[in-house]
């Protein structure tokens, strides 16, 4: 399904490109590795839900080149990301920054786990009292064994 969007990209941009290409890569493997990592956190603006590292869109290629250019100039990872963010906004960050608007998002998993601990703990505490063993009266015992006898044939195999 993902590739449906590729078709869309090809329609919007002139040169059907590919994910990272050799001519984009930096010779310095450390820098290149950093570029790849950064690319994986940046969203391709035309291809929904895809990072620019794997996107085939032309604009994704331009962005990849830009990321590498900034790295060569000496930007830190954060600076590169900030550079792109300044132009495209928070929307391009696949990993939303921790800020008031996303507190709810980032703390939700922790909250869910805490709720779980709370609920589970409460349940465990409330259920822990020892159960009293009360034998059935002989009349009940008879009723039960009669029913059991009736049902014996049901599954005997």
């Amino acid at each position: 399904m993902r590739q449906l969007i590729f078709a869309f990209c090809i329609g919007l941009f002139p040169f059907a490109a590919n994910a990272v290409e050799p001519d984009e890569m930096l010779t310095d493997p450390v820098l290149e590795q950093r570029a790849r990592e950064i690319s994986k956190d940046l969203r391709c603006v035309v291809c929904q839900n895809q990072d620019i590292d794997s996107s085939n869109a032309g604009v994704a290629r331009d962005l990849r080149l830009l990321v590498r250019e900034r790295l060569v100039v000496g930007d830190s990872d954060a600076e590169v990301i900030e550079y792109i963010r300044a132009r495209y906004g928070d929307y391009v960050l696949l990993k939303p920054p921790l800020e008031p608007a996303t507190y709810a998002l980032w703390f939700a998993p922790i909250a869910f786990v805490l709720i779980g601990v709370f609920v589970g703990g409460g349940l465990l505490m409330s259920r822990r009292k020892q159960e009293a063993f009360e034998d059935l009266g002989s009349e009940d015992e008879n009723t039960v064994s009669e029913i059991l006898r009736q049902n014996e044939a049901g599954d005997a195999s």
Partner: peptide
């Protein structure tokens, strides 16, 4: 499940409340 649900729908929720658009992707 709650985390996946929340992460998937958060962009919609945030957009409805503040109008901001964000992406929640694999890193999250």
């Amino acid at each position: 499940t709650g985390t996946v649900l929340f992460g998937t729908l958060y962009p919609l929720i945030l957009e409805a409340i503040t109008g901001d658009k964000i992406s929640v992707g694999p890193p999250f």
